[in-house]
């Protein structure tokens, strides 16, 4: 079976557990295994944008060194933020000599990083290495009739040189996966727009208003459920709907799934026991598990 270095990141061990659990369940059905890196570090979350800040990238470099030690240069993330940060820090290491020298000197307790690791998102592995044809073959429960809106958010697509889809303004990698599972992908005009991200900590109302646009945009196109790849997007899209339910009388909640949870529905026999949804998914599950 194919094996990939897997970097979970902090949130897949806390509020985003279901993203990891479902991915670990479905991968073997597609002929590959995610092998968690030993002694991984936080990627540093969102990448430091200050030219003079090197410290916030140290965690990411340490993780890249752990990947280097495995002998396989590829590392797969499920979290969009981890994917993006590992890729950006790796690029900075390779293009910014001052950054590289300072980091190497600071980390003299570690083997020197050679800059050769390739950060991949799980969706890239599915599309490019496993292929969606293989996904189609593995489907045991086609999600016929289910109308699914994709949600990319920011860090799978931007900055554009780090986009997992060559068409960063109008990507299709999630749509193609949704269709491979037998469901219907519906257009979502807000699929590339920010969910409010970490603004959720001190300004949840701002996030709620951004979530409203995303969900209403999807609903107007007939979506019944929305899928995402990011544990922070999931938290915002799911939890911040509770603010909208209280504040906006005509608002109808929409269930939010990780793309891997949608895969679990199509690829695994047993009915999932998810615990991370404040907006209930039961109605949709009832349709597919008699």
């Amino acid at each position: 079976m194919l094996r990939y270095n897997y970097f979970p990141g902090c949130t897949l061990k806390t509020t985003g557990k279901e993203l990891e659990k479902s991915a670990l369940k479905v991968s073997p059905r597609l002929g590959f295994e995610l092998v968690e890196l030993p002694r991984w570090h936080c990627c540093g979350t969102v990448v430091a944008l200050s030219s003079d800040n090197k410290m916030h990238s140290i965690g990411a470099v340490r993780t890249l060194i752990r990947v280097q030690e495995t002998g396989d240069p590829k590392v797969v993330s499920l979290c969009s933020i981890c994917y993006n940060t590992l890729a950006r820090v790796n690029q900075r290491f390779n293009t910014d000599a001052e950054f590289r020298d300072a980091v190497v000197k600071f980390m003299d307790d570690e083997p020197e990083y050679e800059g050769k690791v390739q950060s991949l998102h799980y969706l890239q592995v599915l599309r490019d290495e496993i292929t969606y044809d293989r996904v189609k073959e593995a489907v045991i429960r086609p999600l016929s009739g289910l109308k699914v809106a994709p949600y990319y958010g920011c860090l799978l697509l931007r900055p554009k040189e780090f986009s997992i889809d060559p068409n960063y303004e109008s990507p299709t990698v999630l749509e193609d996966l949704i269709e491979s599972l037998g469901a219907e992908a519906v257009d979502n005009p807000y699929k590339n727009e920010c969910c409010g991200s970490y603004e959720t900590v001190h300004n949840p109302d701002q996030v709620a208003s951004m979530v409203y646009n995303i969900i209403e945009g999807a609903r107007k196109n007939g979506a019944e459920v929305l899928v995402t790849s990011c544990p922070l997007c999931h938290f915002n899209l799911d939890r911040r709907q509770q603010i909208l339910i209280k504040a906006t009388p005509d608002f109808q909640p929409m269930p939010i799934l990780y793309f891997t949870e949608l895969m679990e529905m199509a690829l695994i026999e047993e009915r999932p026991q998810w615990t991370n949804h404040t907006v209930s998914v039961d109605e949709i599950l009832d349709r597919f598990y008699k």
């Binding site: 949130t11 806390t14 509020t15 936080c42 979290c79 933020i81 970490y198 959720t200 938290f235």
Partner: peptide
Amino acid sequence: EFPTVALVAS
């Protein structure tokens, strides 16, 4: 309750 990633980033 917040996701770890939101707290660290914020």
